[in-house]
Write a protein that binds this DNA or RNA. Structure first.
Length: 477
DNA sequence: ATGTTC
């Protein structure tokens, strides 16, 4: 790809807007040479396609964990003028508000390791997982409608966690504008029994420890020390968000014709933000995002209960932060020196706001927003900080994880789940999964090294390393 | 990611 991408720095490359007819802005790729070698041609085309969309501002942005997605690349960020621009389900993804949160604890890895099997087995029961899995609670239609509007706050109000948790969620765990009236009966029926479940695929609940601290000051503010046990929860809006996305694609395919929007790829289906179709998609997307925040909040509560059952009380399991990886939202950013209201789409990308952003809770105002980057199963996860450079260059955004290099089908052909489990055990990681195939699909070999991805965003300056977290136990669907 | 080819 080096013949089409122009080097700006060792970590930033430009695809000029002359690359493809109709591009309104260039695309910027945050990658290094190593990632350039595995960059998919189709992902480059997708980033160029996004640059042609109505109302796009500044650039189509690509993070180092990029791979081909539905319409937009996964690892893509795009900002559209809030008045003249569009909103697109392909720019959010099927798993609306797939996201990550991390809890700290007062426990050390030496205290937890001897009990890791018992702990993970208990967590595996306390937090249901797997495709189509159903949860331990049943909500009514009215409650579901409230969750669509209130997000994590509904969960806290109903006994799952604390008000302090809400302050440590992006958007306080609630995206404004969620509405149940635009969510189909089918989506609601899928979502109702799945609240409080982990799901499948790359979703997980992981017990980790802080292996290395890169930034003492920030780590202190987050309450992190080397050797301390942390818990990472990675999941999304389950069948509900998936159904909302599917339903909306039908509507927006029609809207593309109705509003005479010219697109290089049907998968970029979108509607003007100010149209009925666009507003309804946003409301359903926000409702799904809020369901996902309630979901992670409920799982957090059961995680704390399980830890207390095994290790007793006063474990200090505070929520460090919760970030969305798949979401669209209205934000203000500077474009060519002018403040603009934009609809920022982050698909497989993380908000990474710098210090003094008004969106941050008081304790993080001085250091910047915690950015949580899950590893693939068995590999390190990272905590970073958002930066002022990200505010200037990437609409305050960074990478979201390690990104696939092997398809699920390929991984199942090449790898055996039992063998993956044994390999992880040798590395001191106990894994509990619903079935062997998931271990093959999610094996470390199927993913880019998160270390490389994180190295790129750190060196590019769009987020900065704070801590590396090493897994000791994983529960997977 | 996903009642994993509704």
């Amino acid at each position: 790809m080096e013949n089409v991408l122009k080097k700006i720095t060792n970590y930033k490359w430009e695809l000029p807007k002359t690359y493809k007819k109709g591009m309104k802005v260039p695309a910027y790729f945050y990658i290094n040479r190593e990632l350039m070698d595995i960059l998919e041609r189709d992902a480059v085309e997708q980033a160029a396609n996004v640059a042609t969309m109505p109302g796009i501002q500044y650039a189509s942005l690509v993070m180092p964990d990029v791979h081909v997605g539905y319409g937009f690349p996964i690892g893509g960020v795009a900002g559209f003028d809030a008045e003249e621009g569009v909103v697109s389900p392909g720019g959010v993804g099927f798993d609306i508000n797939c996201g990550v949160r991390v809890l700290r604890s007062n426990l050390t890895v030496d205290e937890v390791r001897p009990k890791i099997k018992e702990l993970i087995d208990e967590l595996f029961v306390a937090v249901p997982s797997g495709v189509g899995s159903e949860g331990r609670l049943r909500v009514t239609d009215d409650e579901l409608d409230e969750i669509f509007v209130k997000g994590a706050e509904w969960a806290v109000r109903n006994g799952f966690g604390t008000k302090e948790d809400l302050k440590h969620c992006e958007e306080n765990g609630c995206l404004e504008g969620g509405r149940g009236d635009v969510v189909s009966k089918k989506a609601k029926n899928r979502g109702k029994p799945q609240l409080g479940t982990l799901g499948s695929g790359n979703h997980f609940l992981e017990v980790q420890y802080v292996e290395k601290i890169y930034n003492e000051e920030a780590a202190k503010v987050m309450g992190l020390e080397e050797g301390m046990v942390t818990v990472m929860i990675h999941c999304g809006s389950r069948g509900l968000g998936h159904q909302v996305c599917t339903d909306s694609l039908e509507v927006l395919n029609r809207a593309v014709r109705k509003y005479h929007i010219s697109l290089p790829d049907k998968q970029l289906a979108c509607a003007p933000i100010k149209s009925r179709e666009g507003e309804d998609y946003f409301a359903g997307m926000a409702a799904s995002a809020n369901y996902a925040w309630a979901n992670r909040q409920i799982i957090t509560h059961w995680t704390r209960e399980t830890f207390e059952k095994i290790f007793g009380s006063d474990l200090g399991m505070d929520l460090i932060y919760d970030v969305a990886h798949n979401i669209a939202k209205f934000e203000e950013h500077y474009v060519n020196g002018e403040k603009m209201k934009l609809c920022i789409h982050r698909k497989g990308a993380t908000r990474a706001f710098g210090r003094n952003s008004k969106e941050l809770p008081e304790d993080y105002t001085k250091i910047g927003q915690p950015v949580l980057i899950p590893g693939s199963m068995g590999t390190a996860s990272y905590i970073l900080l958002g930066t002022e450079k990200a505010m200037k260059e990437t609409f305050g955004s960074t990478c979201h994880g390690s990104g696939r290099v092997m398809s699920r089908a390929m991984a199942k052909r090449k790898l055996r789940g039992s063998r993956v489990k044994d390999e992880l055990a040798r590395k001191g990681i106990y894994v509990r999964a619903t079935h062997g195939a998931i271990l093959a699909e999610e094996a470390p070999q199927a993913y880019k090294l998160s270390d490389v991805v994180v190295d790129v965003v750190h060196n590019a300056g769009i987020s900065l390393l704070v801590a590396r977290l090493r897994p000791i136990g994983v529960a997977k669907g």
